[in-house]
């Protein structure tokens, strides 16, 4: 049983998530990395900032890991989410799911990031050249 669920006030490392879920009985590790994008709705974004209700968010991430275990048959899940201010291109979230076979790993990874976006008490603030705004709710299809 592996599992790593953390809100981090500093850079997050996909390698740490991969290392946390891999093991000899697993033939696949699927990962997702969300990165700070330089535009939104036609507006230039110069930086991102995330705030979290960290203790609750970590509980929610742990619950998502349990859902992945139940639905896809693998308990090997790592989810790291960064908070604070990020430069464009930096990783905001990393998900890694390991399983015996690729299908479960890929499907579990996709499921976990969608659930995180819907449920985890974390908020994004976009900084523009001339101001900033909190984003509320999922505003895009795949970011």
């Amino acid at each position: 049983m592996s599992g790593l669920y953390r809100i981090e006030d500093g850079p997050i490392d996909p390698g740490e998530a991969i290392g946390a879920v891999g093991g000899p009985d697993r033939g696949a590790i699927a990962t997702f990395t969300g990165t700070a994008r330089d535009h939104h709705g036609g507006r230039r974004v110069v930086a991102l900032e995330y705030q979290a209700y960290a203790p609750m968010a970590e509980e929610v991430l742990r619950a998502i890991g349990a859902e992945v275990a139940e639905r896809f048959g693998t308990p090997h899940v790592a989810i790291l989410h960064r908070i604070g201010r990020l430069a464009i291109g930096e990783a905001s979230v990393v998900v890694a799911v390991a399983a015996a076979h690729r299908r479960e790993a890929l499907a579990g990874c996709a499921y976990a990031i969608e659930r995180l976006k819907a449920m985890a008490p974390i908020w994004k603030r976009e900084h523009y050249e001339d101001g900033a705004a909190w984003i509320e709710g999922c505003t895009d299809a795949g970011g």
Partner: peptide, 25 residues
């Protein structure tokens, strides 16, 4: 630290929170 509905009765010592729709990821 768990989602609750508005009709939940609160008691002393509980940690309660309110927030807008989430936008992590």
């Amino acid at each position: 630290r768990a989602y609750s509905s508005a009709d939940r009765v609160v008691s002393e010592g509980q940690e309660i929170a309110a927030f807008p729709p989430v936008s992590g990821g």
